[in-house]
Nucleic acid binder design. Structure first.
Length: 232
DNA sequence: AATTTGATCAACCGCCACGGT
DNA sequence: TACCGTGGCGGTTGATCAAAT
């Protein structure tokens, strides 16, 4: 009889965050379903992916939405509907989950009120032009020079590791960004890669302390606890 | 001080698309 | 062509916390 391993649910603990982050930073993302086992996590691949994408991933902007962001969301929601991932692509530091939550809790109501007001007053004001304000993700695919590297990420043989050049840093990026295709990266994915590149991890001048303070200090007692011996 | 209510948001669930076999 | 595994998306839930009573 095949026994399915117990999969934990619910809120992630600091230790789990630590394991997942450390694992991804070291080995990258090669298969969400297999990864938890190797990372020492009793979580589903889906749960790991969600946690990483919505919370642990570098360069996620949290906290209050700016007025500009609010306007962008409202306008894009009008245009695109509830396609949160598409909307999030225009707000590269925000996650689709954050935008969805923010819409459902704040903006939806405001948008309805605003619509009612505008219809009541029959204003002639035209809606702002989204095309002008957006980064036009669909049409402007960005080119990155991506070179296959010789070594696969230890200890696995799952595919190649890539490097991004064109920045003054070179950072290994692997199947985290498996959407990389023929050296053309959509704008949406570009932001993810750029975020990763901008993260100083794995670089010589990486200010570990600063990154620690900005991301994980509140979870672990010390940087050493987080950074060293991250795996089980 | 205790309880209720409302807001927020992390996380789960179900569905779908896509690629590989 | 059908099936399966995987990743991604949007809807929804439930835990938590702050404000109100």
């Amino acid at each position: 009889m095949v026994r399915h391993p117990y999969l934990k649910k619910g809120t992630w603990t600091a230790g789990e965050d630590q394991k997942l982050t450390a694992y991804i930073m070291r080995y990258g993302i090669w298969n969400w379903n297999q990864m938890p086992k190797f990372a020492g996590l009793q979580r589903s691949g889906k749960s790991c992916r969600l946690r990483w994408m919505n919370y642990l991933r570098p360069n996620i902007r949290r906290g209050n939405f700016t007025r500009e962001e609010e306007e962008t969301i409202i306008q894009l929601q009008k245009k695109l509907g509830n396609r949160w991932s598409a909307i999030a692509a225009r707000l590269p530091q925000r996650t689709d989950n954050d935008i969805k939550n923010y819409w459902n809790t704040c903006l939806k109501r405001r948008s309805v009120i605003s619509a009612n007001n505008s219809s009541a007053s029959a204003t002639t004001e035209t809606s702002s032009n989204i095309e002008e304000n957006s980064c036009d993700a669909e049409s402007s695919n960005l080119l990155l020079s991506i070179h296959a590297m010789d070594e696969s990420p230890e200890p696995f043989d799952y595919g190649a590791t890539f490097s991004l050049s064109g920045c003054h840093r070179t950072v290994e990026v692997d199947y985290t960004y498996s959407m990389i295709s023929e050296h053309v990266v959509s704008s949406e994915n570009y932001w993810g890669i750029q975020s990763f590149v901008e993260q100083p991890l794995m670089t010589e001048d990486f200010d570990c302390e600063a990154w620690w303070h900005s991301h994980h200090q509140h979870y672990c007692d010390s940087l050493d606890d987080f950074w060293f011996n991250p795996l089980v």
